[in-house]
Every structure is written in structure tokens, then in C-alpha cells.
Design a protein around this nucleic acid. Sequence first.
DNA 1: TGCCGTGTTTGATCCACGTCAACCCCGGGT
DNA 2: ACCCGGGGTTGACGTGGATCAAACACGGCA
Lengths: 247, 247
Amino acid sequence: MSTDAATARLTFEVVKTACSNCNLRELCLPIGLPAEDLRRLDELVSTRRRLKRGDHLYRAGQAFESIYAVRSGFFKTDVLIEDGRDQVTGFQMTGELLGLDGISSEIHTCNAIALEDSEVCAIPFSHLEALSRQIHTLQHHFHKVMSREIVRDHGVMMLLGTMRAEERLAAFLLNLSQRFKARGYSPAEFNLRMSRDEIGSYLGLKLETVSRAFSRFQEDGLLAVHQRKVRILNTTGLRKLMTHQRG
Amino acid sequence: MSTDAATARLTFEVVKTACSNCNLRELCLPIGLPAEDLRRLDELVSTRRRLKRGDHLYRAGQAFESIYAVRSGFFKTDVLIEDGRDQVTGFQMTGELLGLDGISSEIHTCNAIALEDSEVCAIPFSHLEALSRQIHTLQHHFHKVMSREIVRDHGVMMLLGTMRAEERLAAFLLNLSQRFKARGYSPAEFNLRMSRDEIGSYLGLKLETVSRAFSRFQEDGLLAVHQRKVRILNTTGLRKLMTHQRG
DNA sequence: TGCCGTGTTTGATCCACGTCAACCCCGGGT
DNA sequence: ACCCGGGGTTGACGTGGATCAAACACGGCA
């Protein structure tokens, strides 16, 4: 390989991993940063990492060093206890952050697994802290992201604590729909990246119950399901179902 | 009142609200700060606020300005949805922080209510951000606190998603026990500050189910309960019950 | 092309918890 | 001392979702 080619290659890599050049910058950590700060953020995102479907991004028990921004693909996070039970704690898509759980004890407390071939930007946490001491906007935005995670978790607690099966699934689908929409995809038609079992684990239900709820929604004309392909036919119907009081 | 007396009174107040002089500094935000930084933190904690049992510290929908450190007393946080359902998302005791949920949208997303006469330190969030740009230890510690909240929420999701009634209550009691212990109180004997209904809401159960589980534990010799007074007789028994797989 | 494995659907039955209701306990006010 | 009201306990019964089980759809591979 000639020196010229090597240089070209290097440049290419740098450009590729730069936040300032990333089409997710409106979705990800850099939100709202002026151009000059954005360039400083570029130093931060040291490495990309490519994962194949089924690969672990990190495992519970591993030392925490970086948080990760999903560049493309789809992830789930889950926690296990000895006796084999596990709970899916979230699904992460493009522009969302992974690894915030590891900050508290410097050790990851859950597993992050790619549900399809994916790519992430690794952000060394100490660098992020250093930079956010200098860039107020970044600091504040990072705090908002962590806080939003807490609020999201409260929503899931609400869901698990008070909703019945069909309400849970409706809430889940509407949430996915809204997140796809925010990314420029159709809010009405999308592919589920996760199995019925994984949906069930997230929603505190058994896979059979999830499957039955899907069938019920289809019977009621709320959506069309075929395997993992979902098309929402009646958003307001779903939304009404969610808010419907019991008894 | 003489000028001298007024001055004395003022000094007294200042001393009283200083982190550097607070006996909770090993439990609260100042953890691990050297004396000099501790003094700078003192400027941060601008006001104390006293609440009577039943008072709201803040309500969902209110503008977010400060986070609060519980100085004494006991709180619950909950979220409501229109149709009347509510979910208790946590119970907070001495040294724990309240209000982190409000950072994301500058608006509180849940209600914080004193379950007994309580006192909190208000920490204006913009000041906290400013100071944590200067004091690395504070910054890092604050990040850890937020992260710990996320990890705690994952634990609750696990509990709500996979555990049965008695496991949930066992987990809840062991958690309380451990937190009382960390504060120098007896881990074996304590007063519940919350009603059966509030416990039920937190654990995703009805109050009758909570009450029955208490009775069962008493029959099985795991604990002695009288109203809100609880004495744990068999910690390992409770712990075993928690990890016990179903079916 | 047929076979196999994994994920999904659907049905029959069971059971943990919710619901409804009666009663009890205890503290506060008159 | 009495009543009153809110929280807690306990029982009888109903039900939503779990469990068990069978069959089906689909992709991968020989």
C-alpha cells in the first residue's frame, strides 16, 4: 500500500467517525451544539464498533469505560438473576445511548445485545466528563439524556405495575411507532426486530400472551401483523385501548 | 429583638444549611469531597424546606428548578395517568435525591410527597451544573447518583416483570432493611412509613395481596408485623424466598 | 426437494391475584 | 366514654394471564 493510499484511508476513517459529519447529530449527543463545539466533540468519539446480530456490545459484570451511541441497528438490554429469570429493560435504536447503567459502579449491570447487524460509536466516559466540563451545552444535554432515561423507566414501571396485557402491547407499539417516526421512517409500518419472547420479557408477559394480543388486535382491525412485520391501521383505537380503565 | 440576637440567629441558620457541617455528608451529594470543595458546595444549598406529612414537595407539571436532598423524613414519588391509575415509583429516605426526573424536560414528571414530617435541602440545578464543571469529584459523583437511579429502576422492572407477590414483598423489605442499616438504624426492626396501598402500588399489587403476604410471612415465622411496625426474624428465609424459582 | 430447528399461533386447563364485601383495630374529636 | 373514619385483615369468589401441549410457518441446509 502506498503512503498516499494510507493517508487517504486514514482521512476517510476520521471523517467517518466525526460527529460533525454524522447525519444523526440531531438525534444523538451533539443536539444543539454550535459547529465549533461539534468539532471538539469529534475528538471524543474515538472508535466505531460493528456488531453482528446476536453479538454482545457488553455484558453484565464487565468493567465500564465507555458509553455507546447507536449509529445503526437495534439493541436490547437485559438483566439476569441466578435462577434463570431475565428481564429485558429496554430496546435501543439509532441515536440512543447505551451503557449509562455502568456509571454508578464502574461495572456494567446489564447485557447489551445487538438484535440486528449494528454499528455503535464508543464514547470514553472520562473524556465525555472532561469535555462536558468545558461545553455547558454538552453537559446539560447529557444530564437531560440521563434524566430522560429515568423518566422512561418510570413509564415502564407504570406499564408493568398497572396495565393489563393488551394495554401494555398497545403502549409498546405506539412507542415504537413514534420513535420510528422521529427517525424519518413510517410510523405505521415497521419490522419488529425482537421476538415475541423478548417483547414478553420487556412487558412482563409470556410470549403466548403477546401472541394472543397481536391476534386480538388483528381481529379488531387495529393492525395487520405478519410475523415480525407490523402495520398499524388504527392509531387512535390503540391509543384509546391504552387509556381505557379496567373493570 | 436586638441586633446581636439577629446576627446570632443568622449565623446559626447559615451553619445549619452548610453541607460541610451536615452529618449526612457521607450519604449525600458531598461524598468523597475534600474539605475545600465541601465549602464551595455550601454556597449551593441555598435553602432548606420543611414539609409536613402529606405535603407535596413538587407536583407533576411544575417547572423544574432544583433537585432536593432529603435531610430528614421520608418521601414517595408517584406518577398518575388521567383515568386515575397511579404508580408509586419510589420511596426516598435521608440522604437520597429527589427531582432528577425533571431535568429532561425542565418540568417535573412525577409528584413527590412527604410521608412524614420532613426536611429537604434545595439545590438549584443550574448551580449544581456550574459547580460540577469546576469540581470533578462532584461531577462524577452526581453522574453516579443518576446512574444508580437507573440501575435501581431496572431492579424494580425486574421485580414487576418477573416476580410473584411474595417475592416482591420480600425484595421490598430486604431493600428497606438494607437502607435503614446504611443509615445506622436497625436493619431488623423498623416502622413502615407508607400504607399497604402505597406498598401495593409500588409493587404492582393490590393492598389486599400485600396484606395477605404480610400475614403469610408472619405465619411462616419470617417476620413479626403489627400494623406498620415490622421486625424481620429470618433474613435468610426472606432472601431464599426471593430467589426461589417458580413452578 | 425434503428435512430440521426455531419461532409463532392457537387451544384447553389451571392458578395467583384481583375483586367484592364484611369485619376489626386504633386514634382523634366531642 | 362514646362515636366516627380511615387503614388493615380476612374470607369467598371471579378472572386474566400462565402453563401445558399441539400444530403450524418459515428459513437454512443437505
